[in-house]
Design a protein around this nucleic acid. Structure first.
Lengths: 200, 200, 200, 200
DNA sequence: AATGAATGAGTATTCATTCAT
DNA sequence: GATGAATGAATACTCATTCAT
């Protein structure tokens, strides 16, 4: 490893730490209640130095959004290795249920971020958040289509909306059990869809 | 009408105007991005005077929450006059769809408020928001129970979560059409539930 | 004096104090080296309160500019009461010389402000500064015209430029004597202009 | 050419580039609104490296001032080759008029720098700026003396002040034409001085 | 000598809340 | 009760300067 590589690695590492910290802290505290100092502290970086990597707070928010988008891509990427689209969708639901405790405490990262950013008058970041959700919708729709179902787009909206809704309820009521029971319902629904046509 | 009565009436009016303004502005801009001055201006009340009616900003938020709770109570109260619980639930869905434009622009008032308040470390108002949602859940559950369905509680969670989810998606994607199509789906689902048992 | 008058008077007084302080401190330290805190302290006003009267630092700069414009208007207004335009112009030169010590220490308020504001990329305030100088030019030109001189506009530029130049030199060399000697020269020049036509 | 020579040459080149960049950027943006990064970028030098050549920002300002002083020396040096002092002075005026567009956009480099530096509490650099202006004054005075005129010093102040004043006005009003007309006036004045004694 | 990165002090601005009348 | 004004703590962002390599 050359010197310049090491330095670049250190710089990239700090940027990654800041991004990860931003993703977590912003999810937990929300955008408006999170200060740059909060993120800096969580990342172990002096405040002034944050601005070497991100010119504005909004850029940090965007990076956090991209981080969540990356997690999602990682998940769908792994699911894509399953041969059966139905298994992929059920795997997605399982993943959601697996994160029930985080959902019950802080909600869905993308969903809560989208909701908060939508309150802004200046529409830049809110479109970003919408884009991430759209990507999830697209992936889900593709699975439904591969299953040969009509109304794949509608089904996708139904599934993702169900996820956002159950996360919000679990969060508002602080009850992870909602994730479990609704997850089970979604799994049953997916099975029914493929078993004998569209029952919804 | 005595003078003091008139004054009290005027005072109550100001309080009401502040509450209504808070409900609307907080819904549109979110709690953190809304200043007391914003609400005061929307209500046509001088800033300094706000504090005569509400000791803190949090009390204004609480009042806004109560206002939304009141709207909900009004709606369910009206629906309660329908003889058939199924019609009541379908009426609820219709009401949601009827507000599709507001939902697409600002999301569900209670849901977005709950999501934002849940980010707070101090758990006072977030529980309030949860309580409002809980009341809706209870009302819905009661209808399902009156319909003689098993799993009334689960069904209630399903319906309300669907509403929250579709509102969030409609908002994030700025697409009121989502409210319409998902509303239709929910109506069909309600019909199927009562027609031939549980299809979900 | 009613209560509201007194309050308004107090508010107006503070605004005036802030404006006066801004005019003085900005002249002495320049725009960029002056902090809001500097002005607040000079005016005996808590920092946070400054923003009740001026929304931004730039508004304070503008107010200071207007203050200098006001001083100028006061001076020309007084000179306007002299019957002879030549006396008015000589009175103007005398006034300049009378302020030689301030000029030697801090330069001409309007001139140095204009020079500093002209460095800005965003052209808003710099035009303001130009406007103040233009007003002086116009007044001087009017006097020359009343004297029946041709090239009144050119003469005006010559006189005002001489003032700006001698102020700058006096300031750069910290030598008030320059104001005196150049003032005498300008007086002689004015006399010669009217004695036997244009000698310049 | 040995390696060390080449390196020294390269180093000297960087220093020269930095100095030139500083002279230009500081003239255009002013001292306070110019960052070290601005100058570094304009010179094509990495920020961190600037400090190898200049220990502080003030040293860069001083170098810029020296650069402007050098330009002036170059100009007067060239004019010194003219046999007639009157031609030298008229050549100086011509040079000023020749730079009318820069003057109208950014003012006289030395004059604006002097005005800005004079606002500083710590008197180090402001004296420097005064010194540069003094050198110009001395050169001009020498020409007047060679012409056999009495009051050479006063004439010098008059000429240089006129230049500073017209530059400031041209800049504040964004009007290069002022340079042209005032330049013509100065040329006439110089002619009149030598033709028939002192007309000013 | 060269350079990307680090540091920390400083600055404008916002805003909930309080106060004086 | 009503109201303009006051207060001060907080926060995003900048930048000269230093450091590690």
């Amino acid at each position: 490893m050359t010197d310049s590589t090491r330095v670049r690695a250190r710089g990239a590492d700090k940027r990654r730490r800041l991004t990860a910290a931003a993703a977590q802290v912003l999810h937990r505290q929300g955008v408006e209640r999170t200060t740059i100092a909060d993120i800096a502290k969580a990342a172990g970086v002096p405040v002034g130095n944050v601005y070497y990597y991100f010119k504005t707070k909004d850029e940090l928010v965007q990076a956090a959004l991209a981080e969540h988008e990356g997690s999602l891509a990682e998940l769908t990427g792994a699911l894509d290795r399953l041969p059966d689209p139905l298994d992929r969708l059920k795997g997605l639901v399982d993943a959601w249920v697996g994160r029930r405790d985080v959902a019950a405490r802080y909600g869905c990262p993308t969903g809560t971020l989208a909701a908060e950013l939508d309150k802004r008058a200046d529409g830049v970041l809110d479109l970003e958040a919408g884009r991430v959700i759209r990507r999830l919708l697209d992936w889900v729709e593709r699975q439904f289509r591969e299953l040969g179902l009509p109304d794949a787009a509608d089904h996708a909206v139904t599934l993702v909306a169900a996820y956002q809704g159950m996360s919000l309820l679990a969060n508002a009521l602080r009850d992870p059990e909602i994730m479990t029971s609704q997850g089970a319902r979604l799994t049953r629904w997916l099975d029914s869809l493929t078993a004998d046509g569209d029952a919804s």
